[in-house]
């Protein structure tokens, strides 16, 4: 019953043009992705007809190239024109010069920077197009093509590969009764995962919030493994350091003056837009100097109290900037 049915299907299939045509010669056309290289790939065929999908793609690619060529030409002309208006040499007119010229000629008070007038190369203005995702026979390059988000799901696949690899490594270390090196352990502080927008740009794909969350979960799982430092390179590709990172362990050392009194000067103390530098000496008699005045430099009691609150020695401050109350904060 079953056998009969299946052979009939095969015979039917053999009548299809595609099945007949496909017995033909191969070519070693350039294969860029290493994904397909890993497997025995016999997909690149010299079929007599190029697939429908490829034909449509080639047509669209040609249109896009023509459009970009036109845009590029217009940009170059516009650039030269702008350089002449600004009285500069068009040959050495850089993008920075263009930005400055636009800012000068079209001043804008709009808060959002993206909304202000700009003039940039067309490659930056028009969204990048994905290259053809399939070969001449219409066979996709990426093994997760049919998911619709191949790059994103490949990333998840890679994370799982890393996790499996580290688990295996951990097992082998346990068998040797080795322990992970605590000095090499990865710290989550000071870094944050790439935000959704940056990740989308990196993968050239739209990512839903749900998918982004599963990416974060997978990465955190990977990072929490005891041997995660083995995959440091992979992890750090999806992290960015926090700019305002403060190392609390780095406390400046005390210095000593001629009389053997300890003192410390902290430069560039900031409180809002008030700036100053502060010297504390200890032991001292409680002498306070603020911009060559004594504590009466501050008029309110609250400010004065704040200055002497934890003071144990002499204080010497030079402060500038708006607002007396702010200066107290030093």
């Amino acid at each position: 019953m079953m056998t009969k049915k299946s052979w009939n299907v095969i015979e039917l299939l053999s009548k299809y043009k595609f099945w007949r045509n496909s017995v033909c010669t191969f070519s070693s056309s350039g294969e860029d992705s290493n994904i397909t290289k890993q497997a025995v790939n016999v997909a690149q065929l010299e079929t007599k007809e190029v697939g429908k999908a490829m034909k449509a793609y080639l047509e669209r690619a040609r249109e896009h190239d023509e459009f970009m060529k036109q845009q590029n030409y217009e940009f170059q002309v516009g650039k030269r024109h702008l350089a002449n208006m600004m009285g500069e040499d068009p040959e050495t007119f850089t993008q920075q010069d263009i930005d400055n010229a636009i800012e000068y000629l079209f001043p804008s008070g709009l808060y959002e920077k993206k909304a202000r007038p700009h003039m940039r190369p067309p490659e930056e203005v028009f969204p990048q197009r994905k290259a053809a995702e399939f070969d001449e026979t219409g066979r996709p390059h990426h093994f997760l093509f049919y998911t619709g988000n191949p790059n994103f799901y490949k990333l998840l696949y890679d994370i799982v590969e890393q996790i499996n690899h580290l688990n295996k490594y951990e097992d082998s270390m346990l068998r040797k009764s080795n322990k992970p090196d605590p000095n090499l352990a990865l710290h989550a502080t000071g870094f944050q995962w790439l935000d959704q927008h940056t990740l989308e740009k990196k993968l050239v794909e739209e990512i839903s919030e749900k998918n982004y969350n599963s990416f974060i979960n997978a990465m955190e799982r990977l990072q929490s493994l005891p041997y995660s430092y083995k995959a440091k390179e992979f992890i750090s590709a999806y992290q960015k350091p926090l700019m305002s990172r403060t190392d609390l362990s780095d406390i400046p050392k005390l210095q000593y003056d001629k009389e053997g009194r300890a003192f410390i000067t902290v430069y560039e103390c900031r409180r809002k837009d008030a700036k100053g530098y502060v010297t504390i000496k200890s032991p001292g008699k409680g002498k306070v100097t603020i911009n060559n005045n004594d504590i009466r430099y501050f008029h309110d009691v609250q400010s004065r109290e704040q200055v002497v609150a934890y003071l144990d020695g002499d204080l010497n401050v030079f402060a500038t900037g708006a607002g007396r109350a702010r200066r107290v904060g030093h």
């Binding site: 397909t36 890993q38 497997a39 093994f143 997760l144 049919y146 619709g148 988000n149």
Partner: peptide, 23 residues
Amino acid sequence: HIVEKAALECGEFAHTRFWRGGI
């Protein structure tokens, strides 16, 4: 993951995720 890996190794395709209608 087992299935995706097998697909990759034999140069074929895998779909183990949420199925968007109409693919």
